[in-house]
């Protein structure tokens, strides 16, 4: 065998090897996706076809001789043979033209294909597969699924560690609420559909301390904020007293909330997070957009993940 062909084969094998390594050990991978397979096959075919076709002609440079009848004309001493068309080339040209015409007239005539139709089928198939498979996933699997959603959808704002990007831009999800938020909410009230309804929380002009019989004071706000942000743990603190006097009527004595009245502010709760994802939230930290493109399973899962963040400790 000629040395050139040997080289061609070596390069082709190297190409296949490199492809195998890239596809196999890189992120991504074929995933049984026909589109991926075609792309990789295309890349491999491209290299191999080009190499062997060119080798064929290089061989002719090495062993063949120029021949044929020269045309009469010459331009700046460049002559021209009257050779016939290379047969393989001519046949393939004809072949592709026939194929092209077939494609339009018989294969896929003008309106035979709809990319949106194809999309709808793909989506339906995807949904059917995963809905069935994961309809009942719960517990740690649900948290895992939630983490996968979190890493794609939420990191951009809440950061990889879910600490809210240094707390400049988004809420720190490793704690239920920050002191800043509590103060803000008590001062300004809140109306973010955290309960899924329009139910608002009044601002400080609507917050009476049952113990003192007066509106909540600046000092009390500071105290209660520290208490709530601390996870309502320090039950002997001044804040705890304020909480019992002002907040517990709605949020419950333990801060775990009451259905239809006020949300859980002691721990993360599934419905609260889902409500935030459905409606977004505008608070003192900033604006959290509604995450409309997640489906309900994904919302449930990511909520489970967020809840898991504070349960580890």
């Amino acid at each position: 065998m000629n040395k050139l062909y040997l080289w061609g084969i070596i390069i082709a094998i190297a190409m296949l090897g490199a492809t195998y390594v890239t596809v196999g050990y890189q992120k991504g991978g074929l995933n049984g996706d026909i589109v991926n397979m075609l792309a990789v096959a295309g890349a491999v075919a491209l290299v191999i076809i080009t190499i062997f076709v060119v080798i064929k002609y290089v061989r002719q440079m090495q062993v063949d001789q120029a021949s044929g009848e020269l045309a009469d004309e010459s331009w700046d001493n460049i002559g021209e043979y009257k050779n016939e068309l290379p047969m393989g080339w001519a046949l393939m040209f004809l072949g592709t033209m026939v194929w092209g015409m077939w494609y339009f007239l018989a294969g896929y005539p003008v309106n035979a294909y709809s990319q949106i139709g194809e999309y709808n089928e793909d989506v339906a198939a995807h949904d059917a597969k995963f809905e069935k498979e994961y309809a009942s996933i719960t517990g740690s699997r649900l948290v895992e699924m939630g983490e996968s959603v979190y890493l794609v959808e939420c990191v951009a704002c809440h950061g990889l560690n879910a600490d809210g990007n240094n707390e400049v831009d988004a809420a720190d999800l490793n704690a239920r609420v920050s002191e800043k938020t509590v103060k803000y909410v008590v001062n300004h009230g809140s109306n973010n559909k955290l309960l899924g309804t329009e139910m608002p929380m009044p601002d400080r002009n609507g917050l009476f301390n049952a113990e003192t019989g007066a509106l909540i004071t600046d000092k009390e706000i500071d105290e209660v904020a520290a208490f709530v942000a601390g996870g309502l743990k320090d039950t002997n603190s001044a804040g705890a007293k304020v909480f019992a006097g002002v907040c517990s009527s709605c949020h419950g004595p333990d801060g775990k909330g009451m259905e239809y009245v006020a949300p859980d502010i002691a721990t993360w709760s599934q419905p609260l997070i889902v409500n935030v994802l459905n409606n977004g939230k505008v608070g003192t930290i900033g604006k959290m957009p509604a995450m409309d493109r997640l489906n309900s399973k994904q919302k449930e899962a990511v909520a489970a993940y967020v809840i898991s963040l504070t349960q580890g400790e």
């Binding site: 959808e153 951009a156 704002c157 831009d169 900033g286 604006k287 957009p289 995450m291 409309d292 493109r293």
Partner: peptide
């Protein structure tokens, strides 16, 4: 515009 906000873009 659906999933990023003014504050986010600013930063």
């Amino acid at each position: 515009g659906n999933y990023r906000t003014t504050e986010w873009h600013e930063n």
